[in-house]
Design a binder for these strands. Structure first.
Lengths: 207, 207
DNA sequence: TTGGCTATCGTTAGGTG
DNA sequence: CCACCTAACGATAGCCA
């Protein structure tokens, strides 16, 4: 039968698959931002309700406006987060189980570990040495050492070093990004659910 | 008519619709938390990549563990958020409340302050200079060492190293900015805020 | 606790008003 | 920019290994 009847085209082709890459079109990117931002906050809301957990999310639009969701409030949770983080270095010694499955976990633990070391200086520069010495990894020490060296470099040296750094970082970032993406594209399974009243949102002055 | 009953039942009924309410079952809630948290962070990642926006998310598990996602980093974005919020009229957050229409109220719009970014860089510079005072050695070796090591690093190490590298680069930028200022005797100019850290996750040591 | 499977629900790309 | 439509894509509830 092959009805010739292609008389009417569908009003829309529906959703098309896209790559997770920066959207070049300014307009399309803005539209996508609005839609996904809404979906993102909805997910945050559902997560907090279904699992009775505290969730905070902040998104900065390309224009520089900040959108946020927080249960109970962004400030409150952020403070708590910063606190929990400062006590992280202690857990650094637990590194020892890096598996493919646990790659994300291990990866993140080290990430947090190093960042904790770095940020610790911001809060308490006096403790820089102390924390650094606690790091056993030669790489960790080397990184800290590099940062220190930067401060005493001459202009020419700084430029040379910076150039080399960019090259190295480029390679590292590319590979890191690839791995991160793989890590993200792994799971999908079924949890359970339930509902609750919408947590607190902050409304902008314009509203 | 009455088709002769399909003899076999499906191995699974597939996904069922659920109400967004607190999950009573402790176990089911935990499973849901793990699954949805992963999906939530994935959404955050996609949003930041697709729209080139800065996104930060923090989730506290029922057990009190903090999980987070931040691009470039949670602290950085939090600072920016707090900064933008404090610069608003006091009535901002108390204005209208549940007047939203279709979507929930993620209409939190604040003004992002570039000054916060500047402050962050300033803090990092101070830290770098503090450390530099105590270390002096052959820095040229570090570059060669890095390039050699990068190729041999395990995935987890690579990412951790890349993250640390960002901090180093931040120090370089700060140092360069300062020298440039001194050399040209000009005021502070828009710092290079384009430095973007790779999206990072931060999970409890337990993960 | 973690991963895989399946069927289905929810999200959203693309287009219109 | 916002609402609405359609249809396909992606996330995931319920089970099981």
């Amino acid at each position: 039968m092959t009805a010739p009847a292609p008389a009417r085209r569908r009003p829309s082709l529906g959703r098309q698959k896209i790559e997770i890459r920066r959207i070049e079109s300014e307009e399309a990117r803005q539209v996508c931002f609005s839609k996904r931002r809404a979906g993102f906050f909805k997910k945050a809301s559902e997560l907090s309700i279904l699992c009775s957990t505290d969730v905070a999310a902040v998104v900065f639009s390309p224009a520089g406006k900040a959108y946020s969701f927080g249960h109970p409030s962004v400030e409150c949770l952020l403070e708590r987060f910063l606190e929990s983080e400062s006590s992280l270095p202690a857990t650094a010694t637990q590194q020892g189980k890096a598996r493919v499955k646990g790659m994300v976990g291990e990866l993140n633990r080290q990430y947090g570990e190093l960042r904790a070391v770095v940020d610790a200086h911001k809060a308490r520069r006096e403790r820089a040495e102390e924390i650094m010495e606690k790091e056993r990894g030669a790489r960790s020490r080397s990184v800290a050492w590099m940062e220190a060296e930067v401060g005493r470099m001459a202009p020419e040296e700084l430029v040379a070093f910076g150039t080399a750094l960019v090259a190295v970082q480029g390679a590292v970032s590319a590979r890191a990004d690839q791995m991160l993406r793989e890590a993200l594209l792994i799971g999908r399974r079924p949890p359970t659910t339930s509902t609750r009243a919408p947590p607190g949102f902050h409304l902008p002055p314009h509203f």
